[in-house]
Design a protein around this nucleic acid. Structure first.
Length: 851
RNA sequence: GGGCGCGUAGCUCAGUGGGAGAGCGCUCGCUUCACACGCGAGAGGUCGUUGGUUCGAAACCAACCGUGCCCACCA
């Protein structure tokens, strides 16, 4: 065994990940295995861009699953000898990061306004330098084989260059424009947010019915609203054009209570005749629908609630109140005027900010938008043509449906932390300059320039991730070697927010799709089926799991529980992984401590050797195929069951005597199987396999770059499989018989064989001697005739026989019923019918034998 | 309102047309010289309900019940 630390192998009977993982990871880093050369083409190489975690983030279970999947594929492809790059980096996460630092300021009694923009941004950078690498370190705990030497940040210099270039090009093409438009205003972050950052929640509100008198007429229009304070901004009342009740009123004016404004009564299809009274107050300044209707009819847009959530000067006597205060005051005033007809509880869905959790205030404001329709066209085509493959299949449809109805994207945010919009204004001559770099002076008049105050939506920069991280817009070797990336995986929640946008920008700017394959993985829920979330307190900390069970255990567990549907977090699966690491360690100890000093090679002497080699190679074929097709759960469970059942429960038990004898052939075969198994498992359980490999006599270098096994079909052996599976089946039947006949566990029973002799191991593993003589046969199990002996309790044996007879009679009856069915015999495939006939015959024979 | 899922052993989940599976838990027996994070043997499901298709349905179809998610501008 040479330099190998035999003592360590002998003494450690329990695998301890906490002792191994840090050390092994350091060896990988030292070896530079995660930092591939930027050579070759993207077709030859393998690359994955990590979904960049927020700099403010800590590793959560979603990252852990997402990372386990990517690492499995990256490691497998690295072992296949390809340049494998896993691009790592973090996202500046505008709102989240700004909030963290602002909170810190507030705790010290300060504010960002006090500090001023420049100093505040500097402070955020300082925060980032100090705490921003936390999550990167946590990915290392998971064992993620990212290229830590090529780490990127969505605000680093090169990235800014890419973002500005993209902005300018989109502007020049006319896709990016500035407009007063209704946006989702998040009072929490005091910024506009996009449609995708809004979530609708069911809320109990009060529905107020308010009477609006009609001018020059004694009729009254009753309108309903959950936000009476917005009536101050009403500029029309709408009815359905087909609503006969109001046909005569269209064209007249209603009078807005409290304010006295004349509101034209207009007809619009949008109004639902069935709802309420069928009359709808129109507030273009504060409701998205009303905004649309307003624009359509050319109505005035009056803003009565400002960006600070308080009523504006246009709200007259209510100016300065918060929206809630204004609501109470408006309701009171209406009641006093006798205009309030009804109040009733009303449940409806209301938009909330996904970022701050506050209720969205729809607001008209001046924002930058990006037209998406032209960008979407090619991004739809590549998915339709499967040039970007989305799996599982159903998400392809979801992607396409969304893309086909894509709407303009509000890309400006009223924050300080982020990519400040590359637009400069000249106050002197009102010139607007859009540029990739800060222009010195106004080109038109030479005046001072002032940059747009807003920053870009964080997702605007994330959308460039796969190529901006590789150096675009420069033509770098990395870009040539690794773009398009091979694979992307994510939870479905960012399919639109991120994935779709990368496809659009990749095609538009990098000239090709950003990745070939997208795998949408499941969501791991809390143990009770709720979402894992910080605010609910339902999160399970992956680092805690790693501390307790090890990274390999967590990785195995996550892959095993993941599937196409959402699943609850299962401690049992992680423990199964933990048990597997320990069993791998111990089975390896058995092999490594007892094998003779020989070269690993398949050297079958007996049927069981041919069997295990066949099973090994089939497992390699099957597990590889499952990993390639993103069926991670079945891949790891199949590897588990091969190792545990076939290799440990059966093969090792069968060959122990030969191994202890120091037989060369079985030693070579076991070392060979172990080497291939470790390599096969390495992508999913990297630490324990690397550690065990360090004790393997054939080791020349780290397992992380060991060739990934390719199934050797010449070792497939159906005959050996049938023989040994038959032997296993017989062994289990013999053991079961013993157990049910109350034979003491250690007792040796005698029997004779009537018919074809089973493999040698059957007797040994079931504690039977098959060369018994003289005594009476008392039972028969397959070809085995159990002979009477003092170890056997006659009554228990008789009882066991009765039970078996009963079983057989049931089986015979079932077979007869099935074969007696004319339809079955006539229409079922011949092979199926034949099989049934065979079974029936065997059961009848055994029953006859028992009498 | 539209779309997509899911309902299988006590628990968490596989299984997509030919006799119900895994892990955990449970029962019984094992200090068998790799591993008690182990070994051996068991118990435990009329596969949500009702109809239909089929020689044959957990699987395919329909309806219903329950449950989860996504999208959507009814005040």
């Amino acid at each position: 065994m040479g330099a190998i630390d035999r003592k360590k192998l002998e003494s450690i009977t329990r695998y301890d990940p906490s002792e191994v993982e840090g050390r092994v990871f350091a060896e990988w880093m030292e070896g530079g295995y995660f930092h591939p050369e930027a050579t070759g083409t993207a077709e030859e190489n393998f690359s994955v861009a990590i979904p960049p975690p927020n700099v403010t983030g800590v590793l959560h279970m979603g990252h852990a699953l997402n990372g386990s999947i990517q690492d499995a594929l990256v490691r497998m492809n690295r072992m296949k000898g390809r340049n494998a790059l896993w691009i790592l980096g973090t996202d500046h996460a505008g709102i989240a990061t700004q909030s963290v630092v602002e909170k810190g300021l507030k705790a010290e009694g300060g504010s960002r306004q006090e500090l001023g923009r420049e100093r505040f941004v500097k402070q955020v950078w300082e925060w980032k330098e100090e705490y921003g690498s936390q999550i990167v370190e946590q990915y290392k705990r998971l064992g993620a084989s990212c290229d830590y030497e090529r780490e990127r940040f969505t605000l680093d210099d090169g990235y800014v260059k890419a973002v500005y270039k993209v902005f300018k090009r989109l502007y020049d093409k006319g896709y990016i424009y500035r407009d007063y438009y209704m946006v989702n205003w998040d009072p929490g972050s005091r910024s506009a947010i996009s449609d995708l950052e809004v979530e609708n929640r069911e809320v109990e509100d009060t529905l107020f019915s308010i009477d609006y008198p009609v001018e020059d007429c004694d009729r009254i229009l009753t309108v309903a609203t959950v936000r009476p304070e917005t009536m101050l901004g009403d500029t029309a009342v709408a009815v359905n054009p087909n609503d006969e009740r109001y046909a005569a009123l269209v064209g007249k004016n209603a009078i807005l209570p409290l304010v006295g404004r004349r509101l034209p009564i207009i007809a619009d299809e949008h109004v639902d005749i069935e709802f309420g009274t069928g009359a709808l107050k129109i507030t273009p300044g504060h409701d998205p629908n009303d905004f649309e209707i307003g624009r359509k009819h050319g109505l005035e847009e009056i803003v009565v609630i400002g960006p600070d959530g308080r009523l504006t000067e246009d709200a007259g006597e209510f100016a300065g109140m918060s929206a809630a205060e204004a609501q109470a005051a408006v309701v009171a005033a209406l009641r006093a005027e006798g205009r309030l007809r009804a109040e009733e509880p009303y449940t409806h869905s209301v938009p909330f900010s996904h970022r701050s959790g506050e209720r969205i205030e729809p607001l008209i404001s001046l924002q930058w938008f990006c037209r998406m329709d032209e960008l979407a066209k090619p991004a739809i085509e590549v998915v339709e043509r499967d040039e970007v493959r989305i799996a599982p299949e159903q998400w392809k449809r979801v992607y396409l449906n969304w893309m086909r109805e894509i709407r303009p994207w509000c890309v400006s945010r009223q924050l300080w932390w982020g990519h400040q919009i590359p637009v400069w204004y000249c106050d002197a001559c009102e010139e607007t300059i859009v540029a990739e770099q800060l222009p010195e002076r106004c080109g038109a008049c030479g005046g001072e320039l002032r940059q747009d105050e807003d920053v870009l939506d964080t997702w605007f920069s994330s959308a460039l991730w796969p190529f901006a991280t590789l150096g675009w817009p420069d033509e770098t070797p990395e870009l040539r070697a690794f773009y398009p990336t091979s694979f992307l995986t994510t939870a479905r929640e960012i399919l639109f927010l991120w994935v779709a946008r990368m496809v659009m920008t990749g095609l538009e700017f990098a000239g090709d799709v950003p990745f070939r394959d997208v795998y949408v993985h499941s969501v791991i829920q809390a143990r009770d089926g709720r979402r894992m979330s910080k605010s609910l307190g339902t999160g399970i900390d992956p680092l805690g799991e790693i501390d307790i069970h090890g990274a390999d255990a967590l990785r195995f567990g996550l892959l095993a529980m993941s599937s196409t549907q959402d699943v609850r977090f299962s401690d049992a699966k992680v423990e199964q992984g933990r048990d597997l690491t320990n069993k791998l360690w111990n089975a390896s100890r058995l092999i490594l401590l007892n094998a003779a000093a020989v070269e690993p090679a398949p050297r079958p002497l007996h049927v069981e050797d041919r069997w295990i080699l066949s099973r090994l190679e089939r497992t390699i074929a099957s597990v590889s195929e499952k990993l390639e097709s993103y069926d991670f759960a079945h891949a790891v469970q199949e590897a588990y069951s091969f190792f545990w059942r076939d290799l440990c429960d059966w093969y090792l038990e069968i060959v122990k005597p030969r191994l202890y004898d120091g037989e060369a052939e079985v030693s070579a075969t076991l070392l060979y199987a172990l080497e291939r198994l470790l390599a096969l498992l390495h992508p999913t359980m990297p630490f324990v396999t690397e550690e065990i490999w360090s004790f393997h006599p054939a080791r020349r270098g780290h397992l992380v770059v060991h060739p990934f096994p390719q199934a050797d079909q010449s070792l497939f052996d159906e005959a050996a499989e049938a023989d040994v599976e038959g032997g296993i089946d017989l062994t289990q039947r013999l053991r079961a018989w013993r157990s049910l006949a109350d034979v003491p566990a250690g007792a040796m029973l005698v029997a004779v064989i009537d018919g074809v002799a089973p493999p040698e191991f059957v007797g040994r593993l079931s504690r039977f001697e098959f060369d018994g003589v003289g005594a009476e046969p008392v039972a028969s199990i397959g070809p085995v005739r159990v002979l009477a002996s003092e170890q056997l309790d006659a009554a228990a044996v008789a009882q066991r026989l009765d039970k078996r007879r009963e079983e057989l009679r049931a089986e015979v009856e079932r077979g007869e019923r099935k074969l007696g069915n004319e339809g079955f015999v006539a229409k079922a495939p011949a092979a199926v019918v034949e099989e049934e006939r065979g079974k029936l015959e065997r059961y009848r024979a055994e029953l006859a034998e028992l009498g």
